[in-house]
Amino acid sequence: MITISELGKTVGTTQLLSNVSMEFPTGKILGVIGPSGNGKTTLLLCLSGLLPFDRGSITIGVTSITAEESSLRSEKIWQFRRQSGIVFQHLHLFPHLTVLRNITEAPIHVNGKPKAVAETEALALLEKLGIGQHRNKYPEELSGGEQQRVAILRAIAMNPEVLLLDEPTSALDPIRSGDVRNLLQDFTATGHTVVIVSHSVRFLRGFADYLAFMGKSELIEMNRTQQLLENPQDERTREFLHLSEMN
């Protein structure tokens, strides 16, 4: 179970998140939708433990942090960060490392995995996504879609409880392709959770198990994907879905 309770975050006079609470089960895919600039990415960064928040708390599995702990460089925030892996919109692969080393760097040097084991596992993942032949290339030599797969594998290789994807539709193609979808579904099947932030409803339909709609800095509603799409409770959700349909 992942629990977010009364989460709040303000920068200067701008409220980025106000009183956001939600709960969803592990082993599922959650989509977070809403117009740009409504705090979706902020929520994701708070979940990842990379962005301190002002109020509330987040619990992933057995680890939880409060607002105070999120802003301290305490042992707890480091543990909490290990619960999740994040794939940024612009991926931010390590440009000085090969594809293989992008994936194995953390397992070897953080988890202390033997190099041979880490490489065998990484290669298996690369093969699964059909990019094993690129293992010794540098990120800049890959297409956008290939780079996105590497970024996802880099996060998955650390075996996090939750995988966080920020706007994956900007590199678009691969995430909709069968092999990446299979990879993520295999990942959830083993009890892991995936959270995808996107402004594209079309992309999440039929892929996410749950959808959460973010209005201006707050959570408007959350439901099973089909129910939210067919029977939205709030006027703002209806309006957003209507505009999405038209696009």
Binding site: S48, G49, L50, W78, R81, R82, S84, G85, I86, F88, H90, H92, F94, E105, A106, H109, V110, N111, R154, A155, M158
Partner: peptide
Amino acid sequence: PERQWQVAYSLGMRPFQAFRRI
């Protein structure tokens, strides 16, 4: 980019490790 630090942290690296390796 600052995000390189964040990626390293999210992969469980400590500041010194992130500095040295990334």
